[in-house]
Nucleic acid binder design. Structure first.
Length: 649
RNA sequence: GACGAAUUAGCUCAGUUGGUCAGAGCACGUGAUUUGUAAUCUCGGGGUCCCCAGUUCGAAUCUGGGAUUCGGCUCCA
């Protein structure tokens, strides 16, 4: 007698060993149709695997992440089977599930290459294989047998993987004519998979290491219903419309020019306006938090970066030094602002009473990113950090750290960023050689970060071994329209630069002490932040931020003079206003300006000119009635004030 | 940087087998119209078909090299 405990703690009894599928069936036929895998005592199993003894179980369907993973994992095997059918002799790397689907890394024989044209035939083959309703069978094998099997297939990649596994834990899965090394779990058979889309193809290094061979990675996604695939594809198309590169072009925010160079963005007037609003906003917040703005040059003597250690670490792989007419003189385009700020700190002796010193700069830096890494505004070669460095005493560290978290919260709130994640990056205690500074200091810094996050109620993930070589850090990440994650705000604790630059303060004990440095950039960089902001808002920026807040639409050219008068009035009232005085019908002007995402459309004709009013239309909403010009100024000013209320005043 | 794909008017894109294929819509200019809440009509100008070589009687189209962009990989101070 076997007792199976269900999630609601009810118990079902079976006379003999039972499979997950049989359990589902015993509950209801409709459940049996949709269940995909089963958790047995916390471990996810195949539905077709026999449960031999008492267990607690949970059944997974498409609505559970675990169910989807089972589904996609089996899909990856069918992809592999299809590839093996067309390209016998292919070596198979790994084929895991990802957030949206799965991929398989393969090495085709005889230097054959896959290209996007081949995806369709692979999809067709996969559908054919899925429809064969082949059982997916699990085998437990010895390491020796597993090695032999893949040796026969000449699959070096699998051999390498098996070599690292422990004997007695190795399982194979077979469906149709294809056998794969795999921990599972899998679907009972292939017929569950009804809709298949291979989405893209890309190169990927074996085991993620640049020194290894580059394999071909095929990405795909599958669904239990055709309709779900259609819906997914629509969603992807919608997401593409939010791409900041597309909207940035449409809204005339920024551009690139081959003549200027790769990865060197140029801000167009409206983009510059947007950026200025963001900068002014942060400056106000920083003023409240006791920061001082500074301005430093775009270049620095190469020896400055030798002192900081950056030259040694990155000099060869970045922009090369600028020479001067003087022999032996070399300058570097600055890859960061910290060394300059350290020099400012040293300008004058500091007392413990002077700390913390908070030094902020919108500093443009230049980094020679590899060409394949450049990506719109999110990854560029010249960018402006909303940088600041806080020099503080050890007893101030945690408090300063918390204040920086506050600033980041203010920004995320002002822009309604809610779906961010926060990651604490700590050192790898097993590799002390990777880091500089005493382990005592590291402990203190790490503890300060963890405590600061806890006290701020910030939910974080922790990554061991991800710290910078000079200190632990807290990063804020946010996803773009297509689900790619970007690091925005960052706070880093640094014991290294104060050492290298010999920064000091005189303590109450009249001795010299070393300050701790905090690097922080709440936006990360203006470029990346604006990119993510565009995708977040689909270009419909909040009123306080948007480059053009109102556009005046004269009904006909006869009212252009009045429109100009209103626009002048609004502009001196600090409302960013433009006039659409083209010789077009009003319907046309409304359409064009709605599409330009300007929040307020002000229609003026005979009535309005006579009564000194405007007819107000909210973008995407519609007619808001008629207001006097003064009323409109109050109306819009109030809206801006409400958006920013309590954030920095 | 390595792998794959792409690049045609300011933008979005069509262009079949190498031969009236230099195209469309939008944008822009022009004339008419003087417009009341999501596209008025007329006429017109605009191209180094990414660049450089090559094959060919003939290249947007084929081949080689380069540039840039895109995808994921590696990287990210």
């Amino acid at each position: 007698m076997i007792q199976i405990t269900l999630p609601d703690n009810s118990i079902k009894e079976f006379a003999e060993a039972v499979t997950g599928y049989e359990i589902a069936k015993s509950i209801s036929n409709s459940l049996a149709k949709v269940v995909l895998s089963i958790s047995v005592n916390g471990e996810v199993w195949d539905l077709s695997r026999k449960i031999e003894s008492d267990a607690s179980i949970k059944l997974y369907t498409w609505d559970n992440r675990e169910g989807q993973e089972t589904f996609w994992h089996s899909s990856a095997h069918i992809l592999a089977e299809a590839i093996e059918f067309y390209y016998p002799g292919t070596q198979f790397g790994i084929g895991p599930t990802i957030d949206n689907g799965f991929y398989y890394d393969v090495d085709l024989p005889d230097g054959k290459v896959l290209s996007e044209k081949d995806l369709q035939k692979l999809e067709q083959k996969m559908l054919e294989l899925a429809r064969q309703k082949n059982e997916i069978v699990r085998y437990e094998v010895s390491k020796a047998d597993a090695l032999n099997l893949f040796k026969e297939k000449n699959d070096d990649l699998k051999e390498e993987l098996i070599g690292e596994l422990e004997d007695g834990t190795i399982t194979l899965y077979k469906q149709g004519s294809f056998t794969d090394l795999c921990r599972g779990p899998h679907l009972p058979n292939t017929s569950y998979i009804k809709a298949i889309k291979l989405t893209s193809i890309a190169g990927a290094y074996w085991r993620g290491d640049e020194k290894n061979k580059m394999l071909t990675r095929v990405y795909g996604i599958t669904f239990p219903k055709q309709k779900m695939l259609q819906e997914y594809l629509v969603l992807v198309e919608e997401a593409k419309k939010r791409d900041h590169r597309k909207i940035g072009k449409e809204m005339e925010l920024f551009m690139f020019s081959e003549a200027v160079g790769q990865g060197l963005p140029m801000w167009l007037p409206k983009g510059a306006q947007l950026r200025e609003q963001l900068e002014n906003f942060l400056k106000k917040v920083q003023k409240k938090y006791g920061y001082d703005q500074v301005i430093t040059p775009h270049i620095g003597d190469v020896n400055l970066y030798k002192t900081s250690g950056h030259y040694e670490k990155y000099g060869k792989d970045s922009f090369q030094p600028i020479l001067t007419p003087s022999e032996g003189e070399e300058y570097l385009l600055k890859p960061m602002n910290c060394p300059h700020h350290c020099e400012i700190y040293k300008w004058k002796p500091k007392s413990y009473k002077d700390l913390p010193v908070r030094m902020a700069e919108f500093g443009t830096v230049y980094r020679y990113e590899q060409s394949g890494e450049l990506h719109g505004l999110t990854r560029v070669r010249s960018f402006t950090q909303d940088d600041a460095h806080i020099f503080c005493r050890p007893d101030q560290l945690k408090d300063e750290f918390k204040k920086v978290i506050d600033i980041i919260f203010i920004i995320f709130k002002a822009l309604s960023f809610e779906n961010y994640t926060a990651q604490i990056s700590l050192r790898d205690p097993n590799k002390p050689e990777k880091y500089i500074g005493s382990s005592e200091n590291w402990d203190k810094a790490e503890q300060a970060i963890v405590e600061a996050c806890e006290e701020k109620g910030l939910e974080t993930t922790t990554e061991v071994g991800e710290a910078a070589f000079y200190g632990p850090k807290l990063d804020f990440m946010i996803k773009d329209a297509l689900g790619r994650s970007w690091q925005l705000g960052t706070i880093q604790v640094d014991y290294n630069l104060p050492e290298r630059f010999n920064l000091e303060y005189i303590g109450a004990d009249d001795n010299r002490h070393r300050p701790i440095m905090i690097h922080r950039a709440p936006f990360g960089s203006m470029e990346r932040f604006v990119a993510v902001l565009i995708e977040h808002t689909a270009g419909k920026f909040p009123l306080w931020l948007t480059p053009e807040q109102a556009v005046i639409l004269p009904i006909s050219e006869k009212y252009n003079d009045y429109a100009k008068k209103v626009s002048d009035f609004l502009n001196i009232s600090d409302i960013r206003t433009v006039v659409d005085n083209r010789n077009e019908k009003i319907g046309r002007k409304i359409r064009d300006n709605e599409l330009k995402r300007i929040p307020y459309l002000l229609i003026v004709g005979e009535k309005e000119a006579e009564s000194e009013t405007v007819s107000v239309r909210r973008q995407g909403v519609g007619d808001k009635g008629t207001m006097t010009n003064n009323e409109f100024v109050d109306f819009i000013t109030k809206e801006v004030r409400e958006q920013l209320s309590g954030l920095y005043n």
